[in-house]
Design a protein around this nucleic acid. Structure first.
Lengths: 215, 215
DNA sequence: CTCCATCAGTACCGTACGGTACGGTTCGCA
DNA sequence: TGCGAACCGTACCGTACGGTACTGATGGAG
């Protein structure tokens, strides 16, 4: 189906063949549906119509497979950069609200929740790099978008802060609060999702009253 | 060692005998040290010098044991009520900072992190009530203390808010941000704990500038 | 002293998982 | 047409776990 030179499909950005990407897709699907316990090598092989031998040839062992799943999923998420155009107060607010809503939507996503649960479950193990990987690939990525947005706001004289990291932490906390943990603990996200827009606006209002120009 | 009328030890508040409490203590110790994978029935029996048969007689099955561990740990935590004395602005700030620091300390505790990891790992399972239990016994408990504090502040004319739940959510988010998740993902808490005091003060300052009287 | 309940310790069973090995098949390539 | 690489499907192995059954010891009640 594919040779050495893979056809650079949507998933081949990490040096994986399309076939391997499809396998990881099925593995993610299994993880989302049944949790970590359902994520057995035999189950993945069955769901992806491949052999266990191929799994071990491609990913080394089970941990390598889990790492590949996280890398693969992270490679699919592309954070759109903020437009560098001139910002007015209302534009900044709209960008912040959009960012806040996107953040809530991402955190509430099936795959995100499943991968976070997986990494947290493996976090007790010594030398488990899953948590670190998720942190690096996830938070850094979305934090970069927020950082650029905040910096643009400061450049435009709309925001006032000394430590961008602290300002971002406040924004994150106001937006997310303990909702992420509650969803990770199994609280039905369907009910919470309906309030995301209103929650994002409220949080951004609070953030602007803390770090806004006149504050 | 004990009959029907147990001697009301520190752990017998949940209808458990001292022996059973000691077993749960060992189970928590195992969980903290080695994570969920180390929490086998044989391991618990060995660590607690009891038989597996007794474990199943007392707790039914493994899930019952896990539930009992959460209930037991929750029963040990006693949230001290806020003193109902008259509050001035500085007193409210000190109370809020103390609450914030306690919150961070609790969330960063070994047992708390281990139990949260355990409940999150089981959250994918259908009908797993561990997450709900932890949410109810943990958040409600500490949220009640915060609620009383906020209400006292409002009664004293020092705080202004309509929805107490929303105000508490903002306080929680400003204090915790994503630190809880980062610790759950395995980030070394030793390094973070040093900044708890400063972080608590900063968060409370921000909270007061949002919900303080003059805000 | 005898009876009985409880419990520790251990052996045991069925199952399921991670990982490996092997036969059979497809497909590119000379 | 023949060769070899990749791969699927499956059988297999060792291990470890959850849960049960059995034995022997302890200790209190009558």
């Amino acid at each position: 189906m594919q040779g050495v030179l893979e056809s650079r499909g949507a998933s081949a950005a990490s040096g994986l063949t399309e076939r391997q990407g499809a396998v990881l897709e099925q593995a993610l699907r299994l993880l989302v549906d049944g949790g970590e316990k359902a994520l057995t090598t035999a189950g993945i092989a069955r769901a992806a119509n491949c052999s266990k031998e191929s799994l071990y040839k491609w990913f080394g062992d089970r941990d390598g497979l889990l790492s590949a799943m996280i890398s693969y999923q992270a490679s699919k998420v592309r954070t759109l950069d903020v437009s560098a155009g001139a910002l007015d107060a209302e534009g900044l607010r709209r960008h912040l609200v959009a960012f806040a809503k996107d953040l809530l939507d991402v955190l509430a996503g099936d795959v995100s929740l499943a991968l976070n649960r997986l990494a947290i479950g493996q976090a007790s193990r010594e030398g488990s790099k899953l948590g670190h990987m998720l942190q690096e690939r996830g938070r850094r990525q979305i934090g970069r978008r927020a950082g650029a947005l905040l910096e643009a706001g400061r450049k435009a004289g709309l925001l006032v802060f000394d430590d961008a990291e602290e300002a971002y932490g406040a924004l994150y906390g106001l937006v997310v609060s303990d909702w992420h943990l509650r969803m990770l603990l199994g609280e039905e996200p369907g009910e919470m999702k309906k309030g995301f827009s209103r929650r994002a606006e409220r949080a951004v209002d609070a953030f602007l009253s803390l770090y806004g120009k006149k504050g």
